[in-house]
Design a protein around this nucleic acid. Structure first.
Length: 727
DNA sequence: TGTCCTCGAGTTCC
DNA sequence: CTCGAGGACA
């Protein structure tokens, strides 16, 4: 600070502005500027203080002017008419529509001229468009699109955008007396995620998507609040480039009718095409996305569309298509416009990945482990090729963060993978749910009297809250972190049912004769109440049930009889003991010769086994201490269950190797492949790491294939895998 | 105490 | 397939 006193204020102000500018440039160039946020803030503060002390040094383009004074309470933005209307772009959805569009152009121009049209192609940003006006190189006004004719003046909010130039740079291109530049305000994907995370930490609502967040930010009354949003600007057009007074018709309307030749422009700096314009915008200091290209002929436009759609996830911001504009301004002038849009440009949209549906109700499900999970019931809607009716809402906190209410219109996405997710509220119902919404509730959510089933939530006055009692058995719930648990694991029907389904699946009872639905039916009809009961089912009892005929009943009994011999490890994993899956089951089976030996083992003995720690051990000991569990085991053996103790194979083709699968195998199932590996002495892991020896790759491999390559893990396809086994 | 590896559990649709 | 948490190891 002592140093600052000695420096002349004007020099120091210039220095600070330079530093801040450099830091901004690095920040938006994706480079590390080496400057901490705290340091950046200190510079801004010092600069503000200096400018307050010496008002004569304050300029409109100072970085401190990015954050101005808040609007007065209750006031709204000024309405401003656009000098050049912001028309919408013709939206086309497939190749056929694109070819039709070009045909119309050809008819207009005559085929000879249009044989090989030159296009300027660029991404269609999924953000908020804005128009910026520069007078003699200084940013003086910024306007939203509005209805295209009249927008709102949001100059103060736009100033907060750190990569939006407040003053133009003069270089190769002279600075126009009047310049209107249009572009998109957006938030990059990475910054949006980070921003949302920090909002949750501060207890604020999750933002549905980057576009909504941007629109919301720009409409805020206090620029200081807007400055907190990581907004960015990308420029893509300049409807007014005026040298001189602007009185002459040739000065104006560079894109619509007659093309104005800029007056007094040095040779070589006339701007006559979109590609030249991009160059000029960059020279003046406007950010451009860098994804723009020149395409010769329509096929290259289509190829550009496909290329960007495929690489959509690698682009650092959200885009929903590509925009193709005829490159030359002269040819644009001849085509002109229709009432709604320009004839010389179109947007070729991508297949949407986000859809909107109505949240009908939230059902509270009770899982196998007693966890209560909220599940969204939605009006069926197609997302990426499948009809989605349900989506998990994970836990109470998640629903609250999203601020969901039954009746809301919600965003639905299938983010990267297959599983649909509710990502936010599009239109809040606020007690005014869409008409006919409540009548649209599916029958499955209603009870026999037409009321709502227990555990179905179709509305609430305050925020969403998980119930205090289990919707299935009425027991008071317990809380464990984010989750709500029904502690009545022995009595609660969905929990018993879940364990029975798990038993059937893991103990190897063929799903064909009795699937999940079948077990549910046996439960609700009261024929069984635990896995052991399966082995006491009688053909006559099954025939009483709806949908069961002689054949299916006989098949099930046969299947059950054939499934009574169960390998020890598989059997252990089928008991639904926490932390005991297939791997730990096999591990225990190889350490204990019999079930009695395992039952007799104490905590210390178990923890000595490599792979078992205090937590899993605790769960095992507890399970075998429950009399009900021991009784259930007894009943299973009464029912004829026999445990098979197999001898570990050694010296196979894959002895001691760790194997991982990815993709879909052609001729064998994963389970069969796993068995083949184990029989050959190998070990199957679920995730790939440096310790993995082999990756078996089927069709449509996922992220594992790439990781294997990075780690230098040997990759085999299905045929090579078989060959290796045969050795 | 921190980091890496692995397992188990949850998830939707046809 | 992804995420969270248990377990091994430094």
């Amino acid at each position: 600070m002592a140093k600052r006193a000695k420096t002349k204020p004007a020099a120091r102000v210039a220095e600070l502005r330079e530093w801040i500018h450099t830091a901004n440039a690095a920040y938006y160039g994706g480079k590390d500027s080496g400057i901490s946020d705290a340091e950046y803030d200190r510079w801004l503060q010092e600069l503000t203080a200096l400018e307050n002390e010496h008002p004569e040094l304050l300029t409109a383009d100072s970085p401190t002017q990015r954050v101005g004074a808040p609007l007065e309470e209750g006031s709204s933005f000024n309405k401003v008419e656009h000098a050049v209307p912001m028309l919408s772009i013709a939206s086309l959805f497939d190749e056929e529509e694109v070819r039709d569009f070009e045909e119309k152009i050809e008819r207009f121009l005559g085929v000879d001229e249009s044989r090989q049209l030159t296009w300027s192609v660029e991404p269609k940003f999924d953000g908020v468009s804005a128009s910026l006006i520069y007078e003699k190189g200084i940013f003086v006004r910024g306007i939203t699109r509005g209805d295209g004719k009249v927008g709102e003046e949001i100059t103060a909010n736009l100033r907060t955008i750190r990569n939006l130039p407040l003053r133009l740079k003069e270089g190769k291109y002279p600075i126009p007396d009047l310049l209107e530049v249009r572009g998109e305000v957006l938030i990059s994907t990475v910054r949006f995620e980070r921003f949302n995370k920090s909002r949750v930490e501060r207890g604020q609502a999750l933002l549905a998507n980057a576009r909504n967040a941007t629109a919301g930010a720009l409409r805020r009354n206090d620029p200081a609040e807007v400055a907190r949003y990581p907004l960015e600007f990308f420029s893509y057009s300049a409807p007014r480039i005026v040298f001189g007074s602007g009185d002459s018709p040739a000065d104006k309307d560079l894109f619509g009718g007659a093309l104005g030749e800029p007056k007094s422009v040095p040779a070589g700096t006339a701007i006559e095409s979109q590609s030249q314009l991009f160059g000029a915008l960059e020279e003046w200091g406007f950010p451009v996305s860098g994804y723009q290209e020149v395409a010769h002929g329509l096929d290259e436009c289509l190829a550009y569309h496909d290329r960007l759609e495929e690489g959509r996830d690698d682009i650092p911001f959200e885009i929903d298509g590509v925009v193709c504009k005829l490159d030359g301004f002269a040819i644009r002038g001849r085509l002109g416009r229709t009432a709604r849009s320009m004839r010389w440009q179109y947007a070729h949209k991508f297949a949407p990945r986000s859809e909107i549906s109505t949240l009908l109700a939230i059902e509270i499900q009770v899982g196998t482990k007693g966890r209560l999970t909220p599940r969204a019931h939605l009006v069926p809607v197609g997302v990426g090729g499948v009809i989605v009716r349900h989506a998990t809402l994970h836990n109470e906190e998640h629903v609250q963060n999203l601020g969901l209410h039954p009746g809301d219109r919600v965003f639905l996405e299938r983010a990267g993978d297959v599983i649909p997710q509710v990502t936010g509220v599009a239109v809040l119902a606020k007690g005014k749910a869409p008409k006919g919404w409540a009548e649209g509730l599916p029958e499955s959510l209603k009870d026999t009297q037409g009321g709502l089933r227990s555990g179905v939530v179709a509305g609430y006055a305050q925020g969403f809250a998980m119930p205090e009692t289990c919707p299935a058995c009425g027991t008071s719930v317990e809380r464990s972190g984010k989750y709500v648990i029904c502690p009545n694991s022995l009595g609660c029907v969905p929990q018993r049912m879940g364990r029975t389904i798990l038993f059937a699946a893991r103990a190897g009872i063929e799903i064909e004769s009795i699937g999940e639905k079948g077990i549910e039916q046996l439960f609700t009809e009261g024929l069984i109440s635990s896995p052991a009961d399966l082995f006491f089912l009688k053909k006559e009892d099954l025939l009483e049930l709806e949908g069961w005929g002689e054949k299916s009943a006989v098949n099930l009994i046969k299947e059950l009889n054939a499934s009574k011999e169960i390998p020890f490890g598989k059997f252990l994993s089928s008991l639904a003991i926490s932390g005991l899956g297939g791997t730990v089951g096999d591990l225990l089976a190889s350490n204990f010769a019999s079930l009695d030996e395992l039952k007799a083992a104490d905590s210390e003995t178990l923890q000595h086994i490599d792979g078992l720690g205090p937590v899993t051990t605790g769960h095992i000991i507890e399970w075998f201490e429950q009399p009900q569990n021991l009784a259930m085991l007894e009943r299973m053996f009464e029912g004829g269950v026999k445990l098979v103790h197999k001898i570990q194979s050694q010296g196979g083709a894959l002895d001691g190797l760790r194997v991982v699968f990815t993709g879909t195998l052609e001729n064998i199932t994963r389970a069969e492949a796993k068995k083949m590996v184990e029989d050959a002495g190998g070990k199957v892991s679920s995730s790939i790491s440096a310790k993995t020896d082999l990756l078996i790759q089927g069709g449509k491999p996922g992220s594992k294939a790439k990781k294997a390559q990075d780690l230098g893990v040997e990759v085999l396809d299905e045929a090579q895998f078989r060959a290796r086994l045969a050795q």
